[in-house]
Design a protein around this nucleic acid. Structure first.
Lengths: 192, 192
DNA sequence: GTCTATAAGATGATAGAC
DNA sequence: GTCTATCATCTTATAGAC
C-alpha cells in the first residue's frame, strides 16, 4: 500500500508547534524537553533540529502561535456592537476556560512569568502578547470616552491575570469565573 | 591567628537558604542550580547535600523562609488601628518593593506560578503562602463588617498579583505603585 | 563531623547516514 | 531532502576521604 499522496511532511512542523504550545502550558517552558515535544507530535526525537535551528526558535514559534490565537479572539470580539460589550467579551473568554486556567495557569500569564526570569529575548516576545491585549483594551476604553484608557486597560488585565494566578494556585476555577464577572460589572459601571 | 571561637558552621545552612531565596526569585526555581546557590553562599559546591537531603528540601526551606517573612509583615501590620489601615498597609508593602517586583516579579507570585507547573508537593507549600495573606485579609474585611470577606480578600490579592505580573512583564514599577494606590482607594470606599 | 572527587543520568545540539 | 546515531555538557546525588 503506497503512502498517502500528501505525506505528513507539511504537518510536522505544525504538529511540533501544537505539541509544544500545549506542553509548555501544562509543564512549563523549562521543564518541557524536546524529546517530550517530539514524542507528543509523533516526530523522531532527534529530528526537531531539522525544523527549528534551536530550542529557543521553537519557543518563539509557540509565542507566535499564541499571538495568532489572541489576534483571532480580538478580531472576533470586534464584531460586537459597543466597546463595553467587547471588553466584557474579553473577560468572559477567560471565564470560559476557567478549568484550564485553574489546572495549568493562564497560557499567556504563566508563560510570561516564566520567561521573565531567564531569557531576555523570549521575555520581550511574551511581553508583546500582553501588548496585544492591552492595546486593544485601551482602544475600547478610549471609545468609551475615557481619558485614562491605558490605565484602565492595565487594571482590567491585571485583574484577569491575578485571578488566573489565584485560581491556578488554589486549584479553584470558581475564582476565575467570579473575578471575571466582577470585572464585567466594573465595565458596566464605567459604561453607564 | 586562630579561627573564630564560633566558626561559621551555624551560619552555613542559613546562608544557603538566604542565597537560594534570592536566586530562586531572580532566576527562577528550575533555572537555578545547586552550584550557583552554593557559590553565592560561599559553601563548597558538592556540599549542599550535607545540609539538605535533596534539592526539593532546599526549596522547601526557601518557602518556609518566605512564610516567616510574610508572617512577620502581617504581625507588624496588626499594630495598626483599623482594619482598613491594616489592609492598606498590605498593598503599600508591595508598592514599596515595586522596583524589585518589576525586575524579577513578585517573590510569592512568580514562585507559585512556577511551582504550579511541575512539583505538586512544592506547589502545595507555595499555596500556603497565598493562604497566609488571604486568611489575614479575610479577617480584616470581616472586621469591617463585610459578609463576603473571603471574596474581597481574593479580589484584593488578585489585584496585587496581577499588577505584579504586568509590572514584571512590562518592566515598569509604576504599574505596581499605581495599582496599589487604586486598591487603597477601593479599600477606603469599602470602609466608609 | 565536614567536605571532595566522582558517578549516574539526562538534555541540547551536531555530524553524517539514508 | 529527511532522519538517526552519537557527542559534549551539565546537574543531581553519593560514596568515601580527611
Amino acid at each position: 500500500m503506497p503512502h498517502s499522496v500528501t505525506p505528513d511532511r507539511p504537518g510536522k512542523r505544525e504538529r511540533l508547534v501544537a505539541s509544544a504550545t500545549e506542553l509548555l502550558h501544562q509543564d512549563g517552558v523549562q521543564a518541557t524537553t524536546l524529546a517530550q515535544i517530539a514524542n507528543a507530535a509523533d516526530v523522531p526525537p532527534g529530528n526537531v533540529y531539522y525544523y527549528f535551528k534551536t530550542r529557543d526558535d521553537l519557543v518563539h514559534a509557540v509565542i507566535d502561535s499564541r499571538a495568532e490565537q489572541i489576534s483571532g479572539l480580538l478580531r472576533s470580539l470586534d464584531r460586537r456592537s459597543s466597546p463595553g460589550a467587547r471588553l466584557k467579551g474579553l473577560t468572559n473568554s477567560w471565564a470560559e476556560v476557567a478549568e484550564l486556567v485553574a489546572a495549568h495557569g493562564c497560557p499567556l500569564g504563566s508563560l510570561s512569568s516564566e520567561l521573565n526570569k531567564c531569557d531576555h529575548d523570549l521575555a520581550g516576545a511574551a511581553a508583546k502578547l500582553f501588548g496585544l491585549v492591552l492595546d486593544w483594551s485601551e482602544e475600547q476604553f478610549r471609545a468609551m470616552g475615557r481619558r485614562n484608557a491605558r490605565d484602565l486597560a492595565i487594571t482590567l488585565f491585571a485583574g484577569v491575570q491575578g485571578a488566573a494566578l489565584l485560581a491556578d494556585t488554589l486549584g479553584d476555577p470558581k475564582i476565575m469565573r467570579r473575578e471575571a464577572r466582577r470585572l464585567e460589572r466594573w465595565i458596566d459601571q464605567l459604561s453607564g
